[in-house]
Nucleic acid binder design. Structure first.
Lengths: 342, 342
DNA sequence: TTGAAAGCGCTAACAA
DNA sequence: TTGTTAGCGCTTTCAA
């Protein structure tokens, strides 16, 4: 690559000292210089096509203006909007984002945290934490600004931004109850993820509050949030509790898998079985009969997490809220109907 | 952040010179040292929790081990798999990726190229170029390794990886012809994108080769590759050429929009109108009646582009192929049927 | 208002 | 085999 001009080159061209050039180009130091020098320097910078070297800047200032963004898998469609939300505020603040996919593998996640630290990121937004996650906790303990998004780590004071999981579950549960369902199954997410756990807890609380008995509900736990696990768990529900009239799923992909399973065994949705999801991922509205689900904020959640991280980085003594819980909404489409009369 | 240990700290701990520590920790320089020193140094590095500082490394070596990945918009579902393909090879080679979204805005794209250059990226993979794109061309001319993906820039020697657009169009066109269609419309993509242009050219060539007359085909050009433009252009086709029995769309999102339009005016697909797409984006198979489309390689395309870029960066005198054209395949689903008898 | 000098953490040419 | 030294491009303290 052709060598880019440096401060030294500008200094030579204008006959001033490199440090003077540095000052002339820095808005906050500019004030202490004569207008004439500032103008000459800026002019020279322009004609030489000067671009500051951020690597040198970073080494000197111990600040890379870069953040790490950790997600489980960008091909999972709920993450792209979140990432855009993060970048919309980071980019505006002059930060670049290094995006990494953990594939939900703890060892890989751990390694990626180290890689990001080697690269000197100023902070990390982490959407892929496990409920217990020593690697990132240790990094945060050493002073690295971290905020978790979508999920939280238990027993730490790392700030987190999550959805109101409890309210979301309440919304779909109440809908099912109003339609007359009593034999409601929960297709739960992985227990090691806070989303899976919180939604399960909320489901159980709703069941208790509704006075449903143990014979009415069955719970299966998926190992991953994907369609295949949705099918597998739906099959289990079908086998263990054939009288189930509604399946409340911990997320949309599990619900899609469940829909596919019930269709394959000839139980039509919503006539024979009602199904609900969580997240309202893109394109869902085009898949018949239209999954009834819980809408979460995606872009906005990313933006909020990014603002929190910026605050941690740039104003370390200002305190930020430890918990940010975003409101959710019910999206009624076609997968819920009253139970068929037995 | 707690200060991380440096080479100097290890040097102090072991009683050798920092440069010796550097050599001991560098596999390729290690051979010139005594085993005893190497062991002592590595041991100290381990106990101190030493992590190399890549910023200092970058400044010294003039190499950041970072590449820029430019895409139009990560929320467009065909890009996440491409990005994963890129990262799978970049990460394995020790490179980090800075992902930026251009939103298809030339000025924004231009600015992002400059930002990436300030950050000293070792190369750029660009999936968002326009057919004419002076900013990135100039950067490449100055010696920055660049490869374009999915799209190409005309009149440059920047290596590119694209799909076999011509063959893809041939596949769907032939299918429509075999089913007996004659009045075929093309819902074209934006002319300033090579994908839009190449697919349009291919369509016209097929029309000519098939001996269809000007009365048989109508072409409308979308301004963006999205559902809304698909609906608008489908409406235009419907108005200008109501006798059209098939619409060959330049990509899946346009096709989805067209499907939505024709449904809204009561023309059922595929009974009254056949529709085809391009890309085979995720989830398409779940949307009835199932879009017949052209499958492109996504993950693999990213991986190939990344390998090309790596070659440009690490072996600058080895030559790389200027054009890589990936094979495509036909995916037959439910949106194509013989034309209704008039 | 400007210059001189040091140093961020690392690598590499040269010397010993 | 190891140490010395310089320097990547920048910011910032101190002096003038």
């Amino acid at each position: 690559m052709r060598k880019r001009p440096t401060l030294k080159d500008i200094a030579r061209a204008t006959g001033v000292h490199p440090s003077t050039v540095s000052r002339a180009l820095d808005a906050s130091a500019r004030s202490s210089l004569s207008e004439e020098v500032v103008e000459r320097v800026r002019e020279a910078a322009r004609t030489l096509g000067y671009r500051p070297n951020r690597v040198a800047f970073s080494l000197r200032k111990q600040k890379t203006m870069t953040v790490g963004v950790m997600i489980p898998d960008i091909t999972n469609m709920i993450f792209p909007p979140i990432v855009r939300g993060i970048e919309s505020v980071m980019e505006a603040a002059g930060y670049a984002s290094i995006l990494v996919n953990t594939d939900s593998q703890p060892r890989r996640e751990q390694r990626l945290v180290e890689i990001l630290q080697e690269r000197g990121v100023d902070g990390i937004i982490h959407t892929a934490v496990l409920r217990s996650d020593p690697g990132i906790v240790e990094a945060a303990r050493q002073g690295l600004p971290v905020v978790t998004l979508n999920r939280r780590i238990e027993e730490t004071n790392i700030p987190y931004v999550i959805n109101d999981e409890e309210d979301g579950i309440r919304l779909v549960f109440d809908l099912l109850r109003r339609q007359g369902h009593r034999r409601i199954a929960h297709l739960a997410g992985p227990a090691e993820l806070s989303t899976g756990r919180l939604r399960l807890n909320a489901f159980q609380a709703m069941v208790d509050a509704a006075g449903l008995g143990p014979g009415d509900t069955v719970i299966t736990e998926a190992e991953r949030f994907d369609e295949e696990e949705g099918r597998r768990c739906a099959a289990e529900i079908h086998a263990r509790a054939p009288g189930t009239t509604a399946v409340l799923c911990a997320n949309d992909r599990l619900a899609l898998g469940a829909m596919s399973f019930f269709q394959s065994v000839g139980r039509s949705c919503p006539k024979d079985i009602s199904i609900t999801g969580f997240n309202d991922m893109p394109l869902l509205e085009l898949i018949p009969p239209g999954l009834t689900t819980v809408r979460i904020q995606q872009f906005e959640a990313g933006a909020i997490a990014a603002r929190l991280l910026l605050s941690l980085i740039e104003r370390p003594d200002e305190s930020v809220p430890q918990a940010t819980i975003l409101p959710v909404g019910l999206v009624e489409r076609g997968t819920v109907a009253p139970p068929a009369l037995a």
